[in-house]
Design a protein around this nucleic acid. Sequence first.
DNA 1: GTCATTTTGGAATAATATTCTAGAATTTAA
DNA 2: TTAAATTCTAGAATATTATTCCAAAATGAC
Lengths: 213, 213
Amino acid sequence: MTKTSPKSDATSQKKMPKTERSKTRVRKDQILEAALRCFIDHGIAATTIDMIRLESGASVGSLYHHFGSKEAIASALYIQGMEDHFHLLRESLEECRSAEQGVKTIVRTYCEWISDHPDWARFIFGSRGEALSEEQEQKLREDNKAHMNFLQEWFRPYLEAGELQDYPFSVYHSLLVGPAQDYAKHWLSGRLKKPLQDYTELFCNAAWETVSP
Amino acid sequence: MTKTSPKSDATSQKKMPKTERSKTRVRKDQILEAALRCFIDHGIAATTIDMIRLESGASVGSLYHHFGSKEAIASALYIQGMEDHFHLLRESLEECRSAEQGVKTIVRTYCEWISDHPDWARFIFGSRGEALSEEQEQKLREDNKAHMNFLQEWFRPYLEAGELQDYPFSVYHSLLVGPAQDYAKHWLSGRLKKPLQDYTELFCNAAWETVSP
DNA sequence: GTCATTTTGGAATAATATTCTAGAATTTAA
DNA sequence: TTAAATTCTAGAATATTATTCCAAAATGAC
């Protein structure tokens, strides 16, 4: 019995403006971009609202009107990054016509996204979930589930045709992107010199060997 | 020419007590344990110095005397966790007598450590480097390098004997623990139901297949 | 144009991290 | 054993930073 007003959607706890004004998207993006720069330069914990205010040109009131807290800004960036990558991957997968192509595309797209957006990736690896708001947590969870479902559907025919080893599905994602992800993490933090790009094909091939029958 | 006084060690920028008193270790550990509990329950950003003070029984002064900042406490925990795991892995590896044993031991030890210390692991995955002090950053870097060297030495004979595929060494670590690490991250955050333990052997076998010739 | 709603600015407030100092406890040196 | 030196503790005082608040401006609907 925790339902609220019967009139509203499931996600309308907070005041969601009926109409978003034209300049609003722009301002929000200014804030997000400024925040990303700050987070990358100083880390989330060390960047202050005031830095974001200065960097974005928005006022404190505006900042809080649009996002509600510093953490929420970080979370929004996190989610935005994930969505961007998911979207890209889906597009790439649409064109694949074999299990091998698909597997390698997943790994390659992952590596390329990181190589193309190293700052963004550094932020995402660095922030890892911490303190998502209820609403955002939910959104991320749904995005994730939808993404997994998409992958599962994509793979199903090949699995049934015996073109892939029959691992539990939840393990597939880890087997495919785990190695590249770990390498990327160390590379992004400066502990490894050789850029991820140099090993993209290596990780693609290794992944395919792992799951090919 | 950034050297300091010629008398002191390389790492003596800050006041390192000549002698650590007997009860000091105890108090420090009380603080660390209390902080870990707080961090796990509320996340790093949301735990306050006051919570740690209450939970540990130490005074604010004591907290700052021993650690200097909240972030430094988190960093100390991070480093301590890594050291614990490194130590365990080294012990396990000492007893291995073949490439296959070694590879699987690395993966299995990794999985078991996470399964045995899920809270600790959750904290480590969740905190990811952010804001280490200069001194701590350095220590972590050295620990890491030493660990990598140890692994490289351990593997060398088997590599030379052709019992392992000739990948660049920096890639080995990622190929071996990457998948388990990714799975663990999702499991620890509650997105996956099946415990890591259920797939430990799967990850061990997959890792061995990846690097065996 | 008027009205309702959204957005902005920035001062006021609240929450929290950090510094500081006096003194207690412990070790060292004699 | 004692005095001096050092390390540790306590908690009030201070500084920093996040968040709230509300009056005014901008915008879009009618």
